[in-house]
Amino acid sequence: MSNMPSDDDFIKLSHGSGGKETTRIVSSLILSLLREDMMAVKGGIGTDELDDGAAIPIGDGRYIVVSIDSYTVNPPFFPGGNLGKLAASGTINDVLMMGGKPIAMMDAVVVEEGSRIEEVREIIQSFIEILREEEIKLIGGDFKVMPRGQLDKYVITTVGVGIAEKLIVDSNLSPGDKIIVSGTVGEHGAAILAAQENFSVEGELKSDVQPLKHLMLSLIEEFGHSIHAAQDPTRGGLAQTLNEWASKTGHLITVNEAEIPIRDEVRAFTELLGIDPLSLACEGRVVLGVSPADADAILDLIRELGYEDAAIIGDVKKSEKYGGMVVLESVAGGLRILEPPSGTIVPRIC
C-alpha cells in the first residue's frame, strides 16, 4: 500500500513535550502564519521573542505582562501538590520571569463528565489557596464540562497578569554572565514519572511546585539591572532552558555538572531509568543569567531567602565556532554537549 499515512501526518505526544518537536510544530502550525507586525504590540514583547510571557507598554515606562498556560497532569494529585497548585504557581512564575509583579489571574477549568465533585473541589481549593497566599486576584474565568471519554479528567488554563517596571528579556543574556539555579533540579518531573509508573520510590520523590513571587520580587528590587535572563525550567528542564538561551543569543553556555544541585533520591531514580535529571521539569525553581560583578551577591541573597541549595552553575561565553551550544563539564572532568531533550522520555533497558 503506497498511500499509507506517513509519520508526519499525525500529532504525537512528543509534539507536546516541550522540546525540539514542540518548537518545530508551533513554528509550522502557528508562527509561520504570522506576519512580523502581528507578533507583538508596538514597543512590547510577543511571539517574536517566545519568552515566558508577553508585554504591552502602558505609557509611563511600565508594562503589563501577560502569560498563559494550560495544565494537565496525570495523576492530578501527586506527591508535593496537585493540578490546582501547579496551574496557579506555573503562571505566577511565568509572569515573574518576565520581570512582572503578578497582580491578577483568570482561569478556564475543563472537566470530564463523571468526575468526582470532591476531587474537583480539592484541586480548585489548592488553586485559590496559592492566589490568596500570593495576594493575587481572580478576576474572571470559565468552567466547561466535556462528555465522558473525551478528556482525560481535567485541563486548567490560566492567564496571569502583572506589572513590570523593567522587563527581563532572555535575549539580553551576555557573554561573561553567570548562570545561577535557585535550587535542586528535576524534582517535579521525577515525582510525576514515579507516580505514573507506580514506582515504590514515590514517597521519597516530591514535586518542587511553588510560586516564586517573594524570591523574584526581592531579586528584581535589589538587582533588577543585573538580571539579564530568567526562566523557570519547566518542560524539558534545565537542559531546555539553557539551550533556548544559547540558541536565542548565539552564545556558548558552559556548565559544571558538579555544581548543579540534584537531590540524591532524584539522581538514584533517574539513573535507574536511564534518564537525564537535567531534562526533567522543575515547577518551583528559577534559572538566572546575571552579570558577573553581582553574581555572588545575588547568590547570597537567594540563599538568605531560604533557597539554600542555590548555586552558580555556569558561564556564558562568546564563541564564533560553538555559539548556540551548551556544553557540560562532567564530574569526571570531561566534556559533553547538553542537548535539548527530544522525544517522549522512555527508559532504557539494561
Binding site: 557540560l328 562532567s330 564530574v331 572532568g333 570531561g334 566534556l335 559533553r336
Partner: peptide, 8 residues
Amino acid sequence: TQYGIRSL
C-alpha cells in the same frame, strides 16, 4: 559520552 571521557 556522559562523562566526556573522549575529551580527556
